[in-house]
Design a binder for these strands. Structure first.
Lengths: 225, 225
DNA sequence: TTACTCATGTAAGTAGTTACATGATTCC
DNA sequence: GGAATCATGTAACTACTTACATGAGTAA
């Protein structure tokens, strides 16, 4: 139920079309919340049906039109209800961490590659967030300008400060992931020195309970019980 | 596609029923990967159909039975393929961070409450992970004992070290979230001092583009274009 | 006999992804 | 005329959540 609130919050800054919102998600909000147009358009229709937004058909060119959405009073109320709601953060699942739990099934080279993609992924995210942080600090982006223009001056510091704090939080997240990956790489090196395995050899391999009979004559009978 | 690999990895440690696996997820794996029985049972059936696991009906009591699943050779291959696959980590969405981005719509008290639930959530997760880390370090849990018993001694250090590293990673994650929440609480205090708002007053409120006509006579006409 | 654990499912709904599909506009 | 962009959708699929449903075994 967060996409709708991201949409409402963006629409409160300025009325926009679904296309504009999709652009926002893939640029300004790129690294905070992602949503594809195929998710945005139906959600806007639902919001409209529920009376939280209202659309205006706007002409463009000769024949074409677009639908610009703006907040209704109910939509504003929905934002306030959302920000007031106290819900514990959802539990997260980390695929890389699950994988790391079973890296003994990999060769050291594979383990290294796993940590390397983790590293470059979060380095990439970090630079994106750092750029956004600069933008928010400088208050130069059109989004921040629009947001501040509609807010009374006494609130400007808070509006910016919360966004700065959020980006700092995301950057700190990236930093731990980067540090974790680097320590992972060191760990692999250490383990490799002590292990004396062939290059590419797995540290250990999974053992079937039911060896495949078609593949090779089983050395041991199926151990079921 | 990670649940199935979590299941395969657990089944490689020892053959188990769906019920046993659900227990593992809600205790040992509690804070690493969550899955409810309603997700596990159908997935086991799919794995069985694909030939990655094989079930044995085991009697219990007079009339009842249970299905114990074990890995086939194809299942072992699936684990190896999974650990070898290099896929970038999925992009994550953080509801608390999205909310933090728009905390100016909240009162300072509400903002504080938001950071407080964040704080206690990650403190709770951290203690859980710390216990698991101790267990892995001591190598005393039945899960670790089983795992090590089936692994050649030279690999024992790696098996434990990867798990230690994973839990350290999760704990580091929790630490940044805790630090972030604490800095958030400080930020709210700072902003509150400078703002001079009534207790419970919102820093700013969303403004409708389309004021609700039924609610009150609009002070301004609907600003659509 | 009652309550708790063991055991296995289905159904409905939410959230999100990828791919398919279409057509106007604008700029070169 | 062709390519890029603007603009809006649908369909199929995956992953996961919550609730509904059932029944046997075990210990007080």
């Amino acid at each position: 139920m967060s996409l709708r609130h991201a949409l409402l919050a963006l629409l409160n800054i300025n009325p926009q079309s679904g296309y504009d919102l999709a652009q926002r998600f893939s640029t300004s909000l790129e690294y905070v919340w992602r949503a594809s147009h195929s998710q945005i358009y139906p959600e806007l229709r639902r919001l409209e049906q529920e009376g939280l937004v209202k659309a205006t058909e706007v002409g463009r060119g000769e024949r074409a039109t677009k639908r610009e959405y703006g907040l209704t009073a109910a939509g504003c109320q929905a934002i306030e209800d959302w920000i007031d709601a106290v819900v514990p953060p959802p539990y997260e699942r980390s695929v890389p961490h699950l994988r790391a739990m079973y890296l003994e099934y990999a060769s050291f080279d594979t383990a290294r590659r796993q940590f390397q993609v983790h590293l470059s992924h979060y380095r990439h995210l970090k630079t994106g967030w750092e750029h956004h942080l600069e933008d928010v600090r400088a208050r130069t982006t059109d989004l921040m300008q629009l947001r501040l223009a509609q807010t009374r001056p006494q609130a400007h510091d808070a509006v910016a400060a919360y966004k700065v704090h959020m980006y700092e939080g995301l950057i700190a997240r990236a930093d731990v992931e980067i540090a974790w990956a680097l320590r992972g790489l060191e760990l692999v090196d250490t383990l490799e020195k002590d292990a004396g395995l062939e290059p590419g050899e797995r540290v250990t391999s999974p053992i079937p309970s039911y060896p495949d009979p078609t593949d090779a004559p089983p050395s041991a009978p199926p151990t079921s019980a």
